[in-house]
Amino acid sequence: MNMKSRSHPPVLVVMTQQEKHEFMPPDLEARLRALFPELVWADAPLRDDQWRELLSEQRPEIILCAWETPSLPPEAAEHLKYLCFLCGSIRSLVPRELIESGLKVTNWGSSVSNTVAECTLLLILAALRRVGNWSVAMRTKGEWKKGRHPDTLSLFGRRVGLHGLGAISCELVRLLEPFRVQISAYSPSVPDETYKTLNVRRAESLEDLFSTSDVLVELAPGKPDNYHIVGDDLINLLPENAVFVNVGRGMVVDEQALVRASRERGLHIALDVYEVEPLPVDSPLRSLDNITLLPHLGGPTPDRRRDCGKLALQNLENYVSDKPLINLIDLNTYDRAT
C-alpha cells in the first residue's frame, strides 16, 4: 500500500445510520469528506470478526466512531494513531494499554457541558417543585393538592452547593444567574481565580458545603477515592427542605443513604446517574415518593449531538495540522471514566 500524505492519512468512519444522522448531519459530513476525500465509511454494528477484518484491510491511521463501535483489538496499535470518539466514556472501546502505547484518543469532552447543565437545572427545579411526587400521584392515585400551602419551593434566592467545579458546573453557574442564588463549591484542585471569576464561594470542606446548601448538586469525578464519599454523614448535614441532585457519577453516592434520608427526613432527590445502570427494577430508589428519576439523559440531546460532530471535525483538522487536540484523554482521565 502506498504511504498516504500527512494531509490525507487513511481514515475509517464507523457509525450507525442513526449516529450519522445525529452526530454528522449533511453539512458536517460534507466538511469531513472535503478534509478526507479518500475516507472509508463502514456501517455499524459490526461483529468482532468483521471489525478485525475491516481494520486489517483498511489499516486506518485515524478512526472516527460513536457508541456502536466494537472494542479495539490490541493489533490496532500497529497502524492506528488517533481515535476520534464522538461520545463520552471510552473504557469499553479502547483498552488501557493502547493509550499507554501512545494512541491519541479524544471524546466529546466539554462540548456537552451546556446540555448537561441544562438537564441539571431541570432536575433542580423538578425537585424543588416536587414534580416527581405530583406526576406520580396525579397519574396513578387521582390526587390533587390539599389547601393553599403545598411544600413546593422556589429556586430564587436559594443557596446552591456544587460538589465539583468543572466544565459542567461552570455552565450551570451561568444558567443560575437569573435566579439570584448564592453559590458555593468544593473542588480543592480548582484555583482561587476560577472561583473569583465565577463569583462562587470556596467551601472550606464537604461538611461546610453540605451544611450550607439548600440545593446540593453532585458533580464530583468518578475516581476511586470518591467511591461513596457522599454517605449518611454528609447527607444528614443538608438543611431542612434541601434537595439533592446527582448528574455526575453514581459511584460517588451511597444510594442506601439517600433512601434512608428520603424515608426518614423527607429529603427530595433528583437523579440522572446511578451506581448500577440501567437502574435495577427492584432498586429501592424506584419506590420513593420524594424523588425525580431520569434514565441517564443528561448528555447531549439528539438535536445537539451535532455539537460533538463539530468538535470532532475541529480535532481532525488539528490532527492533520499538527495542532493540539482538544479533550485529549490521558491515563488519568481514562482511569476516572466510568
Rank of each mutant, 00 (worst) to 15 (best):
K4Y: 13
V13P: 00
A34V: 09
E38L: 11
A42Y: 09
P45I: 11
D48Y: 15
L54P: 00
S56N: 14
E61A: 08
E68H: 10
L72A: 02
P73Q: 07
A76C: 03
L83M: 05
I90M: 09
I90P: 00
L103H: 12
V105R: 06
S111Y: 05
L121E: 05
L125Q: 04
A126W: 01
G132Y: 02
W134N: 02
M138F: 15
T140A: 13
K141H: 11
K146W: 13
F156C: 08
G166D: 07
I168T: 08
I168K: 04
E171F: 09
R174T: 15
F179M: 08
T197Q: 12
T197A: 11
L198T: 10
L198W: 12
R202K: 15
S205M: 13
S205V: 14
S205E: 12
D208W: 12
E218T: 08
A220P: 01
A220D: 00
P221N: 02
K223L: 01
I229D: 05
G231T: 07
P239N: 08
R249G: 02
M251S: 07
E255W: 07
Q256Y: 14
L258Q: 07
V259C: 05
R260C: 03
E264L: 12
I269N: 03
V273T: 05
E275H: 14
V276H: 15
S283L: 03
L285I: 10
L288C: 01
I291Y: 03
T292L: 03
P295F: 06
L297G: 04
P302E: 09
P302D: 06
E317K: 13
N318Q: 13
D322Q: 10
L331A: 04
R336F: 06
